[in-house]
C-alpha cells in the first residue's frame, strides 16, 4: 500500500508529510476530579483525570517519604477501536503505557513540594486512531496543570514515522500499522529536554535524526497550543471570580 502519494506527496488522509492532525484541548471535563482534560489529535480522543495531591491510600507503595507518590492508570475504552473487544485491565500493553506515562509526568512534577501525599492520574482512550501514547501524555499535562500541581515545565509528546522514504509527522492508525518505524518523543518544551523516546523498529542513524527532529517540532507545536488553552482558562476563571 502506498502511504505517500508519489505524484502529489499527500498522505492517505490528505495531510502533507510534516503536517499534524487537528488539535483540540478542553479543561475541566470531569467535575469530581481535582483536574481533568480532554485532548484530541484528529480522531484520537483521550480523557484524563487527576486526583490529588491527597493522603496516601496504600502506605506500602510509598518509596520516598519526602516526595509525592505519582500513580498512573491507562485504559482503553471497549468502544475505542474498530472491533469491540473486552480488554482485560492488567494486560501487558496498558501496563507498559501506564509506566511510560507515569515516568514521563514524574520527570516534570515537582514532587518534593508535596511530601506524604499521592497524585493519581487516570487516562482513558475514548477513540483510538494511532498515537494514543502521545495523546495521553498531552492530556495528562493539561489535567495536571488544571489541578494546580506544580510542574517544572510542560511535557508534550508527538510521534513520527518513516514510510515510503519520507519522514511523516503524527502517524494515524493506518500509517502506524504499516510496519514502519514509529518514534514517540516526549519533551520538556521550554527547557528543550527529552523525557521520553521510544522506537519499535530499526532506523539508520541519519534518518533517525531527521525523524526525531520532526517529532520534536511537533511537540513544540503542541506545547504552544496547550499553553494557549491553559492561559485562556486561567484568564476566564480570574475574570469570573471578580
Amino acid at each position: 500500500m502506498e502511504h505517500v502519494n508519489p505524484l502529489t506527496g499527500f498522505r492517505v488522509d490528505g495531510r502533507r508529510p510534516n503536517e499534524m492532525r487537528q488539535l483540540r484541548g478542553e479543561v475541566g471535563v470531569v467535575s469530581r476530579a481535582d483536574g481533568s482534560a480532554l485532548f484530541e489529535m484528529g480522531n484520537t480522543r483521550v480523557i484524563a483525570a487527576v486526583y490529588g495531591p491527597r493522603e496516601i491510600q496504600n502506605r506500602s507503595q510509598q518509596v520516598n517519604l519526602k516526595e509525592a507518590l505519582v500513580r498512573c492508570e491507562y485504559r482503553m475504552a471497549e468502544f475505542s477501536t474498530g472491533d469491540r473487544r473486552r480488554k482485560p485491565k492488567g494486560d501487558r500493553r496498558s501496563t507498559e503505557i501506564s509506566l511510560v506515562i507515569r515516568q514521563t509526568m514524574e520527570a516534570s512534577i515537582l514532587t518534593h513540594l508535596m511530601p506524604h501525599s499521592q497524585i493519581d492520574i487516570f487516562v482513558q482512550v475514548l477513540q483510538a486512531d494511532g498515537g494514543t501514547r502521545s495523546a495521553c501524555i498531552n492530556a495528562a499535562t493539561l489535567a495536571l496543570a488544571d489541578a494546580g500541581i506544580p510542574m517544572k515545565d510542560i511535557v508534550t509528546s508527538c510521534s513520527a514515522g518513516y514510510l515510503c522514504s519520507t519522514p511523516l509527522l503524527d502517524l494515524n492508525y493506518i500509517e502506524d500499522s504499516a510496519g514502519g518505524p514509529d518514534v514517540t518523543v516526549g519533551i520538556l518544551a521550554k527547557m528543550d529536554k527529552v523525557t521520553l523516546l521510544q522506537m519499535d523498529a530499526k532506523l539508520p542513524m541519519d534518518t533517525f535524526e531527521t525523524v526525531m527532529e520532526l517529532a520534536t517540532e511537533g511537540c513544540k507545536a503542541i506545547a504552544t497550543y496547550i499553553r494557549e488553552v491553559l492561559l485562556e482558562n486561567t484568564k476566564q476563571l480570574e475574570c469570573q471570580r471578580g
Binding site: 496543570a145 515545565d153 518544551a189 491553559l230 486561567t234 475574570c239
Partner: peptide, 20 residues
C-alpha cells in the same frame, strides 16, 4: 460572561501565567 470579561481590570488578565 463576555460582559464580565470586559469589566475585569485589564491588569488581572495581563498578570495571568501558565506553567513554564
Amino acid at each position: 460572561l463576555h460582559e464580565l470579561q470586559t469589566l475585569a481590570p485589564a491588569a488581572a488578565s495581563a498578570a495571568a501565567v501558565t506553567v513554564a
